[in-house]
Design a protein around this nucleic acid. Structure first.
Lengths: 214, 214
DNA sequence: GTCTATAACTCGATAGAC
DNA sequence: GTCTATCGAGTTATAGAC
């Protein structure tokens, strides 16, 4: 972290890294100061409290979502549904490259903080909403592979939940298997949704129609 | 917490409640002592460190899984697949009854602690494994509603991940909607798996067969 | 097993010079 | 904006009497 970078920026980056690796409460201001090579006076010049620094970190994550999580996946893949799986694969690569030490920083904070700080929870929810919006865009662009009238917002929430749960399980077991199982079932689910989209919307809704077809 | 309950037990129960509500690092030994109406000397007579108390709490969760999470759901419902959804509904009721303040205590600790304490992570993983085993039993008993040769362990992992992710999202948004969206999609997925089980395993694997049927 | 007192340290945050 | 020095409270954990 070279010296020409502004102090405020060094503090945010240092806090981001430490909070992500250790959690919020487990990270001390002293650790952040050391990592940022800054002094206590500077930190409290920019941020009134530790909580305010956390809020700045959460704002930074909001800014970083598209350039670091969404856009790289979109650049690699053009098919709208495959873009969703490219985003998921980004998390997979992170799990592997950090030996399961790092997960989703927003998910970590969501569960550690709960509702203890309403402002932080709001920013966490905003990060989740933005993630879902990116997925919704993919679902919209890939509507041809989905049944008509599907609730894309609910589907995006489902995909986010599967990702967060899969990352949690992979870290807890220090194995990529649970995450891969989640993605595989997600793929299977998409396949079945796609089959309905191609075969007509009423087929799977009625058991009799199903038996007639089979 | 009446006085006739042994001190060691009061300490574990107090720690369970506080850690669940606030997290591990945010909970101090002083808080636990006050809640358990015990003194520092007693606590450190039973538990060498704060971490050891946490391990005892995690052991307690292992003991409580069946009597408090699985069995009540099994008692309410007899259909094997519906038992899975009864377990999920237990988490739904908890979210609502606590106004989204409490989630899954194991999931919370999994993300807060990460791999910072290997012994704790192992016990967390054990709790997840036991949860999955209960689900696997349901999948086994309801095998008639599922495609032949489905990987039940992977499916159970998927269901646990969906639950954990759904609980996280519901708490972050202080709304039951994300959780309900997860359950609804899980139901839809089961419906489609059941349709395949009834209609034959090859139907959804081949696009041509699908178009012929529709 | 339980009690009080406290050690030894770290915490978040502040003061005030520069 | 940055520095050093430090405050007061809170932290985990221990000592030693009972």
């Amino acid at each position: 972290m070279p010296e020409q970078i502004p102090t405020r920026e060094r503090l945010i980056v240092a806090a981001m890294g430490l909070v992500r690796a250790q959690g919020y409460h487990a990270t001390s201001m002293a650790q952040i100061l050391k990592a940022a090579q800054a002094n206590s006076g500077s930190l409290y010049y920019f941020f009134k409290t530790k909580k305010d620094l956390l809020l700045a970190v959460l704002d930074r994550y909001t800014e970083l979502l598209w350039p670091t999580v969404i856009q790289p996946a979109f650049d690699r893949v053009s098919d709208p549904i495959e873009r969703i799986f490219a985003i998921l694969d980004g998390y997979r690569q992170m799990l592997l490259s950090t030996d399961f030490k790092l997960g989703c920083p927003i998910g970590d904070l969501a569960l550690e903080l709960g509702d203890s700080d309403p402002a932080a929870r709001e920013k966490i929810a905003l990060n989740f909403r933005n993630w879902c919006e990116a997925i919704e865009r993919c679902l919209e662009d890939g509507a041809g592979s989905l049944p008509n009238g599907i609730d894309r917002a609910a589907m995006a929430q489902f995909i986010l939940s599967v990702m967060e749960g899969g990352v949690m399980q992979a870290r807890a077991h220090r194995s990529i298997e649970p995450f891969d199982a989640c993605v595989a079932h997600m793929r299977d689910y998409f396949k079945r949704l796609g089959a309905e989209a191609r075969g007509g919307p009423s087929r799977l809704d009625a058991d009799t129609a199903d038996r007639d077809a089979g």
